[in-house]
Design a protein around this nucleic acid. Structure first.
Lengths: 193, 193
DNA sequence: AAAAATAGTTGAACTTGTTCAACTATTTGT
DNA sequence: ACAAATAGTTGAACAAGTTCAACTATTTTT
């Protein structure tokens, strides 16, 4: 069933009854996003939340010097949104673009806010999801300080072997935080040196 | 009253009734932490959450090369904990140290978990606090890529003028992500150059 | 008040990663 | 299948930030 993956994802974080799962899921609607399409553009206000079923997305921002920084790549079982823009109704500073033909489950902001009201356990779900995400961002910041570019690159390959197969080196470089020219040079060196 | 600041902090994030505020606060106990004392050490499991009333704390990690990376400084109105360790019962990778004689409100993990049960609006409070924190970490990672060391240093001074007065340059450098020698050189240059 | 420890400064040599430019290889659109 | 666009490679010059060491200034401890 179309909601199976979403239900599994929820149950990884918190206990939901069968009926709670159904109530939750029925507000999510499938959507096909063709390759290259932009789901959210820098400047727009994010009024949805998405859950990836198939394909791959890149969430990135473009700084004032024109550099692209990739926040993360989202494949099957990942969530898509700009928390900042969604929460604070501010223009988004990120772009969400499909790197492949993709399929997501989408919920409108108004439906999500209604869910928080009608199904209190949803607060717990997103409390836990947010705390886990927060921890991941903390760790990434620490890695960015402690690890060299080369170590960060190999960490990425090791941590997301499946995702990295779908990406160009340029996209990986924008996640690792280096130029693609330098990544090209790194690749020539053996991993341990 | 001792809980005034905590109550204000809560109301910034979510609407609590007077009785909800009281029920929430009564599980927090004041604690004095003298200067230099370590509230949580790397390796320990974090079984509390703290809210700063007075003084100043540094949350930092020491990497395998012996470098100190400061996650953040916590003064009045900031929260203290290692979310990762608290949530996942894993040995903490951070140290929390008082930089001055300080006073906090502290809640035990078991009391906090009980609060989630007895007062459902607490889930909402921490859902929102976590989402805001998550956004702050996202933004910091982006700044670390886009800004030079000098820009990050001046951003810190501008954003936390009150906190920076309490800190040594060495501590600031460990937040900005540079050596204190380099910070010393940066300070000689005019801010805009 | 003296001694010890910690913080801050400075310079020289060095390392890591960037920039720019020219080129080759691969993918995409028609 | 061809043209156009995009991705990847390579090298040389450069810039940002580190390391190490020697020194001075300030703070803490006794």
């Amino acid at each position: 069933m179309i909601y199976d993956l979403l239900k599994q994802n929820i149950l990884k974080n918190v206990q939901f009854s069968k009926s709670e799962l159904d109530t939750f899921c029925k507000h999510f609607h499938p959507k096909i996003i063709p390759k290259k399409e932009i789901l959210l553009s820098q400047g727009e206000i994010c009024k949805f939340e998405g859950f990836v079923l198939e394909g791959c997305f890149r969430l990135f921002t473009i700084d004032n010097k024109g550099n692209e920084i990739t926040l993360y790549f989202a494949v099957k079982d990942w969530w898509l949104m700009d928390v900042d823009s969604f929460l604070n109704k501010t223009p988004s500073s990120i772009n969400i673009q499909a790197l492949e033909d993709s399929k997501i489950l989408m919920i409108d902001k108004s439906d999500k806010l209604a869910l928080y009201q009608s199904l209190p356990v949803v607060e717990k779900l997103f409390r836990i999801m947010s705390q886990k995400a927060l921890v991941a961002w903390q760790r990434r910041l620490i890695r960015n300080h402690c690890y060299t570019a080369k170590e960060r690159y190999h960490y990425f390959l090791k941590t997301y072997p499946d995702i990295s197969l779908k990406l160009t080196d340029k996209q990986i470089a924008s996640y690792v935080g280096i130029t693609h020219e330098f990544l090209s040079k790194l690749k020539k060196q053996p991993a341990d040196q």
